[in-house]
Computed example of a mutant assay.
Amino acid sequence: MQLESYISDLLYRYECVIVPEFGAFLTQRVSATINNETNTFYPPKKALSFNEQIQQNDGLLAHYIADVEKIPYEVAVKKISKRVSYIKSYLSEGETIVFKNIGDLVLNEEGKVTFEPSNHLNYLTDAFGLQQMVSPAITREVYKQEAEALEKVIPIAVTPERRKTKPNLRYAAAAVIALAASAYMGSKYYVNQIETHNQIAQENANTQLENKIQEATFVIKNPLPAVSLTVTKPVGNYHIIAGAFRVEENCDKIVSELKDLGFNARKIGVNKFGLHQVVYDSYENRSDALKALKSIRDNNNPDAWLLVKNLD
């Protein structure tokens, strides 16, 4: 039995997953962080830890295994106990137990279990699809200092040129100014005439358009028959998530591809991080949802996961 796969499934939804007679895996939400030295942005996540002191069975892990494998609860408890015995025997021999996507377990010199969490998987569903990002350093202050330094080194000065104006040139300039003023006044009058004509034409066109709209709106000679549509609304609080996408066009493309494969795929809205979520299907019964999730992981998408949420 791959015990770590069941623990991994539960860590998405719960903050504490207890392995009876062994210990508990705990999660704690960590906000997004920035490394100022490397200019790296890290998305929010769930930080994993292990507490060897918490060993009392709360039934969560056993019930989940019983639902997935369709076995009695008592049988699931025995399977967990058998797996824990193997793990403890390997640890006592100095072996390192590797739980995929969770972390490594090993005994220290004092005989206590130490845990090194894995950073390959983010169990915070709200941050699904977010990756760490490296941004180049902002150098606007450097450019400003360089510009100020250039202004000090290369001053700009304007020297006016003195000329002697001849009387004939003075009269010619006055004539040019007079002609320009006359042309300006004539062109302004012409433009005003054109604007008045255009305004009258526009008002006539608006009147004709309003008459056509009223005729089309209130005079319907051949009304079309009414059409009745029956819409089936997907129900259920158990949703198998196919992915979340920043661009809605990509989201629509995935929905179309999944429908071609026979899934009842659809969009269920945008999460708090602005990502459009796509589901394979929604279920009313938890057992049916887990069965479908297992089939999808085996045959279509190993990264699919189950979201329990009321979308009404």
Results as ranks from 00 to 15, higher is better:
residue 55 Q to N: 07
residue 114 T to D: 09
residue 100 K to V: 10
residue 91 L to H: 06
residue 251 C to R: 07
residue 147 A to G: 13
residue 55 Q to A: 09
residue 213 I to Q: 13
residue 303 D to V: 01
residue 22 F to R: 04
residue 90 Y to N: 15
residue 121 L to D: 00
residue 60 L to N: 08
residue 202 Q to G: 02
residue 196 T to Q: 14
residue 91 L to R: 10
residue 82 K to M: 09
residue 228 S to Y: 13
residue 225 P to A: 11
residue 235 V to N: 14
residue 152 K to C: 01
residue 201 A to M: 09
residue 19 V to Y: 05
residue 69 E to T: 07
residue 152 K to E: 15
residue 278 V to G: 10
residue 42 Y to F: 11
residue 193 Q to T: 08
residue 13 R to S: 15
residue 292 A to L: 06
residue 99 F to Q: 02
residue 112 K to N: 13
residue 79 K to V: 05
residue 261 L to Q: 15
residue 73 Y to T: 09
residue 175 A to H: 02
residue 6 Y to N: 13
residue 174 A to C: 01
residue 74 E to Q: 11
residue 30 V to Q: 12
residue 281 D to M: 10
residue 288 D to M: 12
residue 86 Y to H: 09
residue 45 K to T: 07
residue 285 N to V: 12
residue 268 I to W: 01
residue 150 L to T: 02
residue 225 P to D: 12
residue 181 A to E: 10
residue 21 E to F: 06
residue 296 I to P: 14
residue 31 S to G: 08
residue 105 L to A: 04
residue 69 E to S: 12
residue 107 L to W: 00
residue 177 I to T: 15
residue 98 V to W: 06
residue 69 E to Y: 07
residue 65 I to F: 05
residue 264 N to V: 04
residue 297 R to G: 04
residue 236 G to I: 06
residue 252 D to G: 08
residue 73 Y to A: 03
residue 222 N to D: 15
residue 143 Y to I: 03
residue 57 N to A: 12
residue 240 I to S: 06
residue 142 V to I: 14
residue 240 I to M: 09
residue 193 Q to V: 11
residue 121 L to K: 04
residue 268 I to Y: 01
residue 199 Q to G: 01
residue 303 D to F: 00
residue 275 L to I: 02
residue 227 V to E: 15
residue 130 L to A: 02
residue 106 V to N: 04
residue 227 V to G: 07
residue 17 V to R: 05
residue 68 V to W: 06
residue 149 A to K: 06
residue 74 E to I: 08
residue 177 I to M: 09
residue 211 N to V: 08
residue 260 D to M: 02
residue 289 A to C: 11
residue 269 G to W: 03
residue 164 K to E: 13
residue 177 I to P: 00
residue 213 I to G: 03
residue 84 V to I: 11
residue 283 Y to T: 03
residue 24 A to E: 07
residue 211 N to A: 15
residue 254 I to T: 13
residue 38 T to D: 13
residue 116 E to A: 09
residue 59 G to H: 07
residue 236 G to L: 05
